[in-house]
């Protein structure tokens, strides 16, 4: 007759220090494609923060009067501002596609009163709202509405 061995049957009589190496993060952890995308997503925070301060600068100038407004609008033609705004646009599109297209369709509350929609439908709804808001806002700012 055999029977199941006691789970501690092979344990040493006294507990000793473990001989396994302590866990270490590999030096190339940030190089994995999935992690790189995640880190880029986090790095857009720097761009967003600066973009917020640029808009604050514009609004402050608008409050100061026509001369300050004209100067700040002229300043926007500087190559550094153009490069920063191009980077901001890329960041905003990256964040939008990752957040609206990938993350939010999976983040629907489950078990609540609302039905869980198909991810494609959620993606389509959010993208449509984003496109519509961008179109209307752009037309207003461009003086077409």
């Amino acid at each position: 007759m055999t029977r199941a061995a006691h789970p501690e049957a092979m344990a040493p009589p006294k507990k000793g220090p473990t001989r396994t190496a302590p866990p270490q993060i590999p030096g190339s952890w940030w190089g994995a494609p999935r992690i790189r995308t995640y880190l880029l997503f986090g790095a857009t925070g720097v761009v967003y923060f600066l973009a917020g301060t640029v808009v604050l600068h514009l609004v402050w100038a608008l409050g100061k009067g026509p001369d300050a407004w004209a100067k700040v609008m002229d300043d926007l033609s500087h190559p550094l501002y153009l490069a920063f705004h191009a980077l901001t646009l890329i960041s905003v599109l990256f964040v939008g596609i990752r957040a609206f297209g990938t993350m939010m369709p999976k983040m629907q509350p489950r078990g609540g009163p609302l039905p869980v929609l198909a991810p494609g439908l959620v993606r389509g709804l959010i993208y449509s709202a984003w496109a519509a808001l961008t179109l209307v806002f752009s037309l207003i700012l461009a003086g077409k509405i």
Partner: peptide, 9 residues
């Protein structure tokens, strides 16, 4: 993100 897109553009 939604507001910044049109504004920056």
């Amino acid at each position: 993100t939604m507001l910044l897109t049109g504004f920056v553009l």
